[in-house]
């Protein structure tokens, strides 16, 4: 298992680029999460809501972003995860996940996190605090 030990403040975890967003991803997330709001799966409903097409659940993107930290749960757990939803994610968008260490203490590590689309625009931004165990 990878380790966070020795990661210098200011350094980033290895970024992850997701495959282009597909409708099936959003259908799966709807089923797994129980969020069946049709603006995430059915174009007509999205259009009725004034959108150009279906948009990803914000929580789908937030769920994906958390996986940057999954390899480290033997040394820390996620104590705080705070996200602001800044922009919409559409089908075929290519999302890249980022986390940069901002602060490291005896007990905790704080990261600035975001997910960006193919135009380099942040669609969600926030912070993660890991509590060392």
């Amino acid at each position: 298992m990878n380790s966070l030990k020795g990661l210098p403040v200011g350094e980033s975890l290895e970024e992850i680029t997701l495959p282009p967003v597909a409708r099936i991803d959003l259908i799966k997330y709807a089923g797994a999460s129980g969020d069946y709001n049709p603006i995430h799966t059915i174009d007509e409903e999205a259009e009725k809501a004034g959108l150009p097409g279906v948009i990803a659940h914000g929580m789908w993107t937030m769920g994906n972003l958390a996986k940057l930290f999954t390899p480290y749960y033997e040394e820390a757990f996620m104590e705080n995860y705070a996200i602001r939803f800044k922009g919409m994610v559409f089908i075929d968008d290519v999302i890249t996940l980022h986390a940069r260490l901002e602060d490291d203490s005896e007990e905790k590590m704080s990261f600035e996190v975001n997910a960006e689309n193919q135009d380099g625009r942040a669609v969600i931004t926030g912070t993660v605090v890991l509590k060392k165990i």
């Binding site: 997701l18 991803d25 799966k28 997330y29 089923g31 797994a32 999460s33 789908w60 769920g63 994906n64 958390a66 996986k67 999954t70 390899p71 749960y73 033997e74």
Partner: peptide, 14 residues
């Protein structure tokens, strides 16, 4: 398992 799969994170810890 279904949730982890839906966010592309089928890690063994889950």
């Amino acid at each position: 398992k279904k949730f982890a799969e839906s966010i592309g994170d089928l890690h063994p810890i889950f």
